[in-house]
Design a protein around this nucleic acid. Structure first.
Lengths: 241, 241
DNA sequence: TCAAAAGTGTTCTCCCTACACCCATGG
DNA sequence: CCATGGGTGTAGGGAGAACACTTTTGA
């Protein structure tokens, strides 16, 4: 953080923050990473001490090259999670005049997707916790609203770019992938149609680990074909549901 | 604008602006409203004096309820165009550290659509001018980049919500509507398929002014069915091209 | 009289949808 | 042995894409 001191301007300036909605998936449902406010040393300057909030913090005017860097840095500082700035997607600007009573603060909301499995131990459990989407406590500031907006954004984005790669383990099964989509879109799909659609996208490579495909009870394992996946992500596509 | 004075903060704050990409349509091509920087009294504090730029300006911390209000207010002040805050769509945050050499400035880019015909005389021609998209001069700051981003956004949005209403005169023809879509998407469509698609959307009402439909050389006139149009806009739709 | 503009309808194909049966496992 | 989970194929419908001809006007 930039040094505390005295900074003088000819016109009033707002404070600017980046907030992060981090989505994870545990194989059953979508989860969001929240932090408990006020554990930090600088607690005194924070409002909503003790309540849950989205990770995020102030733009460091001297050091953050872009607001996405702020998101990346704050997430790392607050939760130990390390995501590159480019892994964040911008959701939008929240700028209501009195969203923070202390001073004028506008925030740029971001979201990102992470594999829960690879991250489980990395987060600072003291302060950070994963919550089910249906089970979110009351949040500081307008963070409920930001969270809803981010989830709606994810719901929309999933129609135009494949999404599993960031959320699923390296190797996964079709039922897992389907459950992921169903969790995000809060709906159910026909197994056969879903499988067809996915296979025709050409981003699934069958994985042949040793386990014999005895019968059909044990699901087939796949991994994403990174080349095709990225190509598809670049080009975008229309996935109708 | 808030009173000039001395404003002191414990940490450095960025300045925040809203920039506006205003698209219009003259029946042939898409145009963008630009302003000439530096004509104002406060010119001394402005960089890029004399060059063209997007309309926009600083968030008034005390008066602007949201950043969209900033966009609306600045557009009005600079170009006499009056658009409600809700008529702006947010494109995104541009926050590169050195996008403004004087101080750290982040901007929230917006775009909006207006009927050129209704606006022609309203703009302050001294300072504001409509430019063809293919004919944009070099712009101040990173405004070229913002303009490109806004246009890409418009291109995407047009797939999911009808767009003609904001850009066309009250009464228009199918060829006009098609040309509008072709201008935005920079492509050509088959007349018959385009007509079918549009008619099936149910947002076109045939207009019977007196002119006899002699032969087929004079195009049929339509207006938008506002109810269906708004409903469609609310629900969103998938328009494949 | 010829080129340009505008209106219209049909066929083909593809993709999405709905839907049922089989097999193997584990309780 | 039965409930559960997972794999697979097909028939029908709807929407997009491709495509040609007619009329009128203005040059």
């Amino acid at each position: 953080m930039a040094k505390k001191g005295t900074y003088i301007y000819e016109y009033p300036h707002p404070a600017v923050t980046a907030d992060c909605v981090i989505f994870g998936y545990d194989g059953k449902s979508i989860k969001v990473l929240l932090i408990k406010r006020g554990a930090e040393k600088e607690a005194s300057k924070h409002a909503f001490v003790g309540s849950w909030a989205l990770p995020g913090g102030f733009l460091d005017v001297d050091r953050d090259r872009t607001i996405a860097n702020t998101a990346s840095r704050e997430l790392r500082e607050e939760t130990k999670l390390h995501l590159r700035p480019s892994e964040f997607k911008e959701v939008g600007c929240f700028s209501e005049k009195n969203r923070d009573e202390r001073e004028r603060v506008i925030t740029i909301a971001h979201y990102a997707l992470v594999k829960l499995t690879e991250v489980e131990g990395d987060t600072d459990a003291e302060k950070a916790e994963w919550y089910n989407l249906g089970d979110i406590p009351s949040l500081a500031f307008d963070h409920d609203q930001i969270l809803r907006a981010a989830f709606m954004r994810l719901k929309r984005d999933i129609h135009f770019e494949p999404v599993g790669f960031e959320l699923l383990p390296e190797v996964f099964t079709l039922p897992q992938l389907q459950n992921l989509y169903e969790s995000i879109l809060e709906t159910k799909f026909d197994r056969r149609n879903f499988a067809n659609k996915m296979k025709h996208l050409g981003i699934l490579d069958e994985v042949d680990d040793g386990t014999p495909r005895n019968g059909t009870r044990t699901p087939i394992k796949y991994r994403f074909n990174k080349d095709n996946y990225d190509e598809l992500k670049r080009r975008g596509f229309q996935l109708e549901f």
